[in-house]
Design a binder for these strands. Structure first.
Length: 305
DNA sequence: AAAATCCTCAACCGCGTACAG
DNA sequence: ACTGTACGCGGTTGAGGATTT
């Protein structure tokens, strides 16, 4: 006996969502918040299953989504995180604000895989496709770099940075948070990221590649570089966060509560004027200035003024 | 210009897991 | 402990647009 379907599929619509359906879903969630996905379609007047609604919302309609191609830094982060986490797209997505697991998975399958293969790297193992026995034959680690016709990519610029750094000091394998001696480890570094297998690390331990050029904060191990932070200037969103109330013991921002059950933040979203950080009637809930440029303002819009 | 092929990505499917009763 | 239900995740599909022949 098979699994019971998540919902009664008879008479339910499948396939691409229409603008009208999107609008219904948005209106419902903005008004009522996210309740049970199973119950939502009926309540919202949609002929869709709850699963489809959830997917549509999380992958396309959420107002905090970034659209468009992944930047070079985002792509590098995906590669590094994939080396650590494997195909755990959701975990990877959680490190990239405004990106969904589906988006990252698609990008990986359509772009990154090819790119890595072209560079001679196995996208599954993140190891060189060529068979080089690193441990038993250290002399073989030397690669004739001039023979490697790698395309000029962000990865290669990272490689350049890393190699320059190698000249004078130990380098830190960024995502693995490991320091490696600059001896005969060129094989490992040539690919722009470490291929050494290590146990999983916690997200806050992850260092991005560009930390090579910017010293990490001595008080925090979650040291995304300023360069990366710049990359994460959310062009579509402006978040005003009350840092006085939103840091945990490690200084991590932890109350971006737009999706909290109580939907305080949605109250702001729906208010005539977004609350500002210096408003006199300050409140303890997250102070978020909600998006004024939302994902789809071409065909139809849910911008409110 | 038309047909064939390739590519992208939104959406679906099914499984694993969490949780309530 | 067991069962049923709902949700979330990762793999896969296929429509439609882009590119090539």
């Amino acid at each position: 006996m098979g699994r019971k379907p998540c919902c009664d599929k008879v008479g339910l619509k499948k396939g691409p969502w229409s603008a009208e359906e999107d609008q219904k879903l948005i209106n419902f969630i903005l008004t009522n918040g996210q309740c049970s996905w199973r119950a939502l379609p009926k309540l919202a007047g949609l002929l869709r299953c709850g699963k489809s609604c959830r997917l549509r919302w999380t992958n396309y309609l959420r107002p905090d989504l970034k659209r468009g191609l992944l930047s070079e830094y985002e792509e590098q982060m995906v590669i590094d995180l994939h080396a650590q986490l494997g195909n755990r797209w959701s975990k990877i997505a959680s490190h990239l604000f405004g990106r969904t697991d589906n988006e990252i998975k698609n990008h990986w399958n359509t772009h990154v895989k090819k790119k890595l293969k072209k560079m001679g790297i196995d996208p599954l193992t993140h190891k060189p496709l060529s068979t080089i026995n690193i441990t038993s034959e250290p002399q073989e680690q030397k690669i004739d770099k001039s023979s490697m016709e790698l395309p000029e990519t962000s990865l290669n610029s990272t490689i350049t940075e890393a190699k320059e750094e190698e000249k004078s000091m130990k380098i830190t394998c960024p995502l693995l948070n490991q320091t490696m001696e600059t001896t005969t480890t060129t094989t490992i570094n040539i690919n722009g990221f470490c291929t050494k297998e290590v146990s999983l690390i916690e997200p806050h331990e992850i260092l991005v590649t560009s930390t090579i050029n910017s010293a990490p904060s001595p008080t925090s191990s979650s040291c995304y570089s300023s360069k990366l932070i710049e990359e994460f200037e959310f062009h579509d969103l402006e978040w005003l966060i009350d840092y006085n109330t939103s840091s945990d013991d490690n200084g991590n921002i932890n109350n971006l509560g737009l999706w909290d059950d109580d939907f305080d933040a949605w109250g702001n979203l729906l208010s005539d004027r977004p609350k500002l950080a210096n408003d006199s009637d300050s409140f303890s809930s997250p102070q978020i200035q909600c998006p004024t440029r939302l994902p789809f303002d071409q065909e139809y819009s849910w911008i409110y003024t």
